[in-house]
Simulated assay, not measured.
Amino acid sequence: MRIERIDPGLSSVGALLEESDQYMAALYPAESNHLESVDDLCRPNVALFGCFVDGELAACGAVKVIDDGEGRYGEVKRLFVGAPYRRRGISAALMARLEQRLVEAGVGVARLEVGVSQPEALSLYRQLGYVERSRFGAYGPDPLSVFMEKKLPSRESAAAQRR
């Protein structure tokens, strides 16, 4: 397994995002899907990472650094593992890399929105230390959404832990 920053315009990314879109459309109505487009993923405040297994793009996930009325935070977006690659720890590994990216950028809080019909994702996020919170950013009220956040270590403490 190899995780690295990737170009959102790659054809393999497009195919994986299409699979993600179909999966989410089967779970939620359109107004409850808050998916970033390829154009959104190309913005300078966004970093998209891919996980490769045997040379194939198996999963992806992005972080978006936001500075709004709530302060500076990172939002996890588009975390998705292709069906053949699930249950291998890829989501947790990708989340660790996304959080590392935020720490490197000096961001102290990671936030995310996840749907109520994704028990595996909710369980993973809770295991990783995310806690439920009120909605944030531009999200409106939605009974199908769960909003979560996790405090991240500072760059200095993260560097000390790696030593």
Rank of each mutant, 00 (worst) to 15 (best):
1 M>P: 09
1 M>W: 02
3 I>A: 00
6 I>P: 00
9 G>M: 06
10 L>C: 04
13 V>N: 00
14 G>N: 09
16 L>E: 06
20 S>R: 06
21 D>K: 12
22 Q>R: 15
23 Y>V: 07
25 A>P: 02
26 A>R: 03
31 E>G: 02
31 E>H: 14
31 E>R: 10
32 S>D: 01
33 N>L: 14
33 N>P: 05
35 L>Y: 04
37 S>Y: 03
38 V>Q: 01
39 D>N: 13
39 D>K: 14
41 L>S: 02
43 R>L: 13
44 P>E: 14
48 L>A: 06
48 L>F: 08
51 C>M: 04
51 C>P: 03
52 F>Q: 00
53 V>R: 02
56 E>P: 01
57 L>C: 05
57 L>M: 06
57 L>P: 01
57 L>R: 00
59 A>H: 00
60 C>Y: 00
64 K>E: 14
66 I>C: 09
67 D>Q: 08
67 D>V: 02
67 D>L: 10
69 G>L: 11
69 G>N: 11
75 E>M: 03
76 V>W: 01
77 K>R: 13
77 K>D: 08
77 K>E: 04
77 K>S: 07
80 F>G: 01
80 F>E: 03
81 V>P: 12
82 G>F: 07
85 Y>T: 04
87 R>S: 14
87 R>M: 10
89 G>N: 10
90 I>R: 00
91 S>I: 09
94 L>M: 13
94 L>K: 08
96 A>H: 10
96 A>V: 02
96 A>I: 03
97 R>M: 09
97 R>C: 03
98 L>A: 00
98 L>H: 01
98 L>C: 02
99 E>V: 02
100 Q>V: 01
105 A>R: 11
106 G>K: 13
106 G>S: 15
108 G>M: 12
114 V>A: 15
114 V>R: 09
117 S>Q: 13
117 S>M: 13
117 S>R: 15
119 P>W: 08
120 E>G: 09
121 A>Y: 03
122 L>S: 01
123 S>C: 12
127 Q>R: 12
128 L>D: 03
129 G>I: 05
129 G>L: 05
132 E>G: 14
133 R>K: 10
134 S>F: 04
134 S>M: 08
135 R>G: 09
135 R>W: 05
136 F>Q: 06
137 G>L: 02
139 Y>T: 11
140 G>I: 04
145 S>R: 05
145 S>W: 05
147 F>E: 11
147 F>W: 13
148 M>T: 05
148 M>I: 08
152 L>T: 10
152 L>A: 09
154 S>G: 15
156 E>I: 14
157 S>M: 14
160 A>N: 10
160 A>T: 12
161 Q>T: 15
161 Q>N: 14
162 R>E: 15
162 R>S: 15
